[in-house]
Structures are given as structure tokens and as C-alpha cells.
Amino acid sequence: MGKPDNKTAASSGYSSWREIPAVPVSVPCKGSIGATGEWRTFRPVLDAEVCIKCGICYLYCPDGVMIYKEGSIPEINYTYCKGCGICVAVCPKEALKMVREKQ
């Protein structure tokens, strides 16, 4: 039976069922389904003055868009952030808030 072939979801493009692997499997890659930041209605905005650099938002972010190293202030990758608001909910210092995107 077919082995995984490391193609990403966005680039499958097979011409015959004989070529496809047995199950769809993809390997990690950046934004395999496109710039998901376009889905956002509200964006999380970080107040660096209040942030204590604990990294909890980084741990909880389901999309891995918090760029953080221990002891640093996180940066948000808005190309892929869908605006789910989990980082705002878990921030112990209320350093993050959701702001409506402009039309």
C-alpha cells in the first residue's frame, strides 16, 4: 500500500488514484492551508508594558503564532493568527486584549 510522500495538503494534485498514498498524511510546514490570518475578525494586541514574559500565551496558542523565547516579550505572527482569543483568556496579567479589525 502507498507510503506517505511528504506532500503538503495544499499541493497534492495527483492525476490517478493509483498514485495516492493509502491515507492523507502531511508533514509539518508553515501555513499549509494558506494565510489564515485573513479569517480574523478581532486581533490580539499585546501591551509590552504589562507583559511579564511568562510565555503562557505561547504555550496555549493552538496555531503556534506566538514567537517567544524564555524571558522575551512575545511577538504575534498576524499572517497566520486566526484571532481565536485564547492568548487573551489565559494571560495572567491581562496584557493582551482583542481589538476589532478595520474593514
Binding site: 507510503k3 506517505p4 495538503a9 493509502a22 491515507v23 492523507p24 498524511v25 502531511s26 508533514v27 509539518p28
Partner: peptide, 26 residues
């Protein structure tokens, strides 16, 4: 061979497959 969960070689399985992709073929 076809699917193997292994932390050293991470994969995503059960991915979203669009209508014109290979759902029917799978």
C-alpha cells in the same frame, strides 16, 4: 508503512481534503 506516529518524525493525519482533491479517491 502507511501511517506511523513518531515524535521524532511528526505528521498530521486526517487532514482536511478539499472536494476537488482526493477524498473520493481515498
Amino acid at each position: 508503512d502507511h501511517i506511523n506516529l513518531n515524535p521524532d518524525n511528526p505528521i498530521t493525519h486526517g487532514n482536511l481534503v478539499m472536494p476537488e482533491q482526493e477524498y473520493l479517491d481515498f
